[in-house]
Every structure is written in C-alpha cells, then in structure tokens.
Design a binder for these strands. Structure first.
Lengths: 255, 255
DNA sequence: GTTGACCCTCACGCGACGTGAGCAACTATC
DNA sequence: GATAGTTGCTCACGTCGCGTGAGGGTCAAC
C-alpha cells in the first residue's frame, strides 16, 4: 500500500492529480484509512499506467474512464480512431511548414500570396470550403473555378508518392541541419549517408540518375536561385551554403 | 477595412476569438466605429497570421503578444525558428502514431512492449531526471548508472535493433510465464535456457556483462520497485516472484 | 417599417489540473 | 512526551483560450 506522495514519485504525476483522479472517479484508492488517507495498491498502479498511456496519446480523461471501465470497450477501435486524428494533425503540421516556407518567401518579396493563401494550413479544411462557397457567391462561378482548379492541382501534387518523397527529403535535410548545429563541418557531412539519401531524392524527382557532376551543378543552382535559398535558410541559418558545400565535396570525392 | 465576420471568414477563426484578441490587447482593430463596430485592415490581417502561426506552435497568447510587440522582432528569423519547432512537433506526432501502432499490435498480441517503450518519447525530460535522482537515492548510484547508460545505449539503437531486443525479451518472458503456467517450479526454471536469454538481454541493455551477483541484485530491484512489479504482473499474476525466484536460484547455482 | 443579417457587451462554462489556506495526522528527535 | 517537520486532508478559487448563449443595438434591403 502506497500513499499519495509515494505513488506520485513513482509515476511522475502530482499529488493533486491523484486527488483529481479520485474526485472524478478515474482512479479511486484501494482503501481509505480512518484518517481519510488514500492508500493505493499494485492494482491501482497498473491502472494508473494505463491512464497515463492513454493520456499521453491525448485522450480526454472521461474517455479513458470509459475505456478502462468497460471490459467490452474496443480499445483497438478507439486507438485507431485516435490514430487517424493524430495523422490529420500531423498532416496539418506539414501544411503549416509549407505555409511558413511560402510566408518567408513572401516576406523576402519572392512570392506574392493572396490574403487567403496567407492562411492556408492554418485554417481547417471545412472553413476553407465555406470560404470558397462564399467566393462563388461574391465573384461568380468563373473566378471560383480558377481558384478551385489551382487547389486541385496542388492537392494532386502533394499526395501519394510526393508525400513519401517529401518525407525522405525532410529526413535528409533535417539530419544535415542537425549535423550543422552540432558543429560538424560540411566536408565531413559529405560522407554522411544522408547526402546519398538527398541525391537519391533528386534522382527520384528528375526520374533519371543524378551523377556527381549533375549533383554539383544542382548545388550551384541552389546557390543562385533565391527560391531555393529561402527554402534552405528557413531550415536553418546558413544551411544553404552548408548543404551546397557538402554536395560539392561529395561530388568531388566521387569523380 | 473588414468587419469581424469578414476577418473571421478569411482567417478561419471565430468572431468570438477576434473579440477575445481585442479584449486582451493582442489584436486591436485598426478602427472602431461610432457604432462600436470593429474594423480591421491589411496590417491586422498580417498580424493575425503571425498570431495564428505562433498559436499553432502552442505558445500562450501572452507570449505571442510580447514577441509581436517587440520592435526588435525579426519576422523571418522567428518564422525560421518556428519552422524548426514545427518539424520537431511533427516528429513527436510521428512518434505518437508509432506508439499507437505498437500499442494496437500489442493489444492484438502481435508484439510485446516494455513499459519503457510504452512511454517512449512521452515523458517530459525533467520528470525523467527527477525519477533518476530518486532512483539514485533509493538504489544507490551504481544501479541508477546502469539504467541511465542503458537509456543512452538504447538511444543509439535503430528501430530494428530495438525490435529485435524487445522480441528477445518477449521470448524469454513469455516462455518463463508459460513454464509457470504449466506448474514448473521457479527453481526448475532456473535451469531453463530462457533465463540465460533474459540475462543476456539485461547485459545488452546495460552494455556490460551481468555477473550472477548483479543478476540477483536486479531480481531484488524488480521486487522492490513497483514499476517493475506492475510490468511483470501484467504478464501473468505472480510472475514477479516467479521470475525473481528463478533469477536468484540461477545466480546461486552459478557461484 | 419590417425583416434578417450582423454587431455589441456581459457573463458563465469547460478540462485538467495549479496553488494556496487552514487544519489534522504521522514521524523523528530531543 | 513535547516539539518540529513532513505529509495528509478538504475546500475553493485561478488558469487558458475560447464556446455559448442572453439580451439588445445597427444596418442594408425590400
């Protein structure tokens, strides 16, 4: 039998949290002494673990209660539902990152965003649909058609293989940015397998092999084109030159 | 000049939110009419976008206020910082999704997760530091050192390494639990090669050999630490004492 | 002048606890 | 067995970012 503070120490929650969980009936103590002290047993520790797991997954306490108290409750289905929620959240983050990239470009004058596009990714999809419906009303169906079609193209563009490819690219870029943060030189990073991953991504985008010379040429293009610079600088300050240095060092070593 | 509902439609926030942002001084309208209506301009739309970006990162509104009102505020730099934060957030979501996948697999009986794995990436760093400090106090610096190092070792592991290790552990634990179910005594199970497998797993986690004495000491820790107890009891009722008895019997027989 | 969409200001509600306040009870030491 | 320090308890209000009415003024159109 453990007291509140003991359980708190073991599980990492606060005493108040245990009080709260008792209050709402989520985790009543095994016994309550004549002094009104709460005492918890092994059974309660296990239940607390379950609670914390589900809480960590973002489920509200009420739902956790339902899951743990109903033996017939379909945990798998609940978790899958929650997984889908998380997935859309994750995609939402990807949208946000793209919006930030475009915003940075906009602030640098490389791109012009309409008032509406400013909010892309920040706005729930249904709200955007509402807005589009409102546009149809205001400007007539022709203008709305243009807007709609451009979005359709973008939707096709980001789905499927593209998403996987973007993930691959993000892994390579983020990893190399981390290497830069850790003080590893660009020349050393040229040996990092992430460079190979990056080159493989390029080849995949081009749909043809990317030999060392072409890879070095691409580095130059990154340097001379502001869009690319904006993109790489948004990952980390100085990352443009870092990446291109590593790319060129790699190419030199190959041939 | 846009009214509240127009801004709301464009930005996706509610009218109430705009009221709220005015109330707390985060986004005052450009002008207020004689009828007390709020009117917003392009400037305010830009500021709102900044607010939404920061809010999406989980920053409290008060902090957003401070950031945006600072005249030294560099939008591009801030956005770049945010981008990186978003990326780690996105990775956190990916972690959560993986954890859920594994939990689902676990519930379906396809996989066995250790508690440590269960909470992987979900426990705040400071809590873990607290917990480790407490471990030092309770078990002495030696054991805590092992635990700490094992975490470090595990951090370097690939997903495949981890899965292999977890499988190894699961095989040993499940096998011994089955032995217990079949009525085989703990003393007899001490001769089971599964005990050797379990000890090898421990050595692998600690990244150093686990001599009989240390193995017996570990058994005592399992017994005295409720977290471990909870974990083993979740495999089978009474498995904690069964396993520790077998571990100790094995250790005695060795030396 | 009436309708209906829009605007306003209170002001309470929520979810998951944090944070005292004020008091009882246990533990350790002198 | 007195005392001090820790730990426990129960209220009960505070937090954050709004949602959700209630109750009432304003505006454009018919």
């Amino acid at each position: 039998m453990y007291t509140v503070s003991e359980v708190a120490r073991m599980s990492g929650v606060t005493v108040r949290t245990l009080h709260h969980y008792d209050e709402i009936g989520l985790l009543p103590p095994a016994h309550i002494g004549e002094n009104r002290y709460r005492y918890y047993g092994r059974e309660e520790l296990l239940r607390l673990q379950q609670i914390l797991l589900h809480r960590a997954l973002g489920l509200p306490l009420e739902e956790i209660s339902a899951i743990l108290d109903d033996p017939d409750f379909d945990r798998v289905a609940t978790l899958q539902k929650h997984r889908r929620k998380l997935q859309t959240e994750a995609e939402h983050y990807a949208d946000l990152i793209r919006t930030i990239d475009r915003t940075i470009a906009d602030l640098k004058g490389d791109d012009v965003m309409s008032d509406m596009d400013l909010y892309s990714g920040l706005v729930p999809a249904e709200k955007q649909a509402e807005y589009e419906a409102w546009l149809v009303e205001k400007y007539g169906p022709d203008m709305a058609e243009d807007i709609k079609r451009s979005k359709q193209v973008m939707a096709d563009w980001t789905k499927g293989d593209m998403e996987a490819a973007m993930k691959q690219l993000a892994i390579a870029e983020q990893g190399l940015a981390n290497a830069m943060d850790r003080g590893i030189s660009a020349e050393d990073s040229a040996n990092d397998p992430l460079i190979e991953i990056h080159r493989a991504w390029v080849a995949r985008m081009w749909d043809k092999p990317c030999p060392p010379q072409a890879y070095a040429g691409l580095a130059d293009m990154y340097l001379s084109h502001p869009d690319f610079e904006a993109r790489y600088e948004s990952i980390a300050k100085g990352f443009t030159t870092y990446l291109t240095d590593a790319m060129k060092a790699w190419a030199e070593r190959q041939g």
